[in-house]
């Protein structure tokens, strides 16, 4: 039990934040995605998404590239190798932790204390 508590404390807080978790999980499944796609899928405002992306970029988890596809300007975001490994580690830790809490059915039944 002590080990699992330690795992909980060592979860990557940068990824653990819900908005950033959405961004990283989305980017994990693709090669790259642009700002507009991320904004639509996460439901975040432009400002909010920018702030979270900047934090992830600062940590070296996300690479942001401003480019063009034909005449269309794109802000392309992709997970770096560090970001990919960090997310894999986060998933493993969280999975172990959730598994260690057991099944809902294993919860001891509330039985009335014997009288007398």
């Amino acid at each position: 039990m002590k080990l699992q508590m330690h795992q909980l404390a060592s979860l990557d807080r940068l990824i653990h934040e819900p908005a950033r978790l959405m961004i990283v999980a989305l980017l994990y499944t693709v090669e790259s995605a642009d700002f507009l796609f991320l904004q639509r899928e996460t439901g975040l405002s432009k400002g909010n998404l920018s702030v979270h992306l900047a934090k992830l970029e600062q940590a070296g988890y996300v690479q942001i590239e401003k480019t063009y596809r034909g005449k269309l300007p794109l802000t392309l975001c992709s997970l770096t190798e560090t970001g990919r490994e960090a997310f894999q580690h986060y998933r493993r830790s969280l999975h172990h932790l959730v598994a260690a809490t057991g099944d809902d059915n294993e919860r001891p039944a509330m039985t009335p204390a014997p009288a007398g």
């Binding site: 995605a33 642009d34 507009l36 796609f37 639509r40 596809r69 034909g70 392309l76």
Partner: peptide
Amino acid sequence: KMRITYPRTGYVAYHQ
């Protein structure tokens, strides 16, 4: 897609 989709809902490149 460049004319219709990407300007509306965004661009995604998939893992090959």
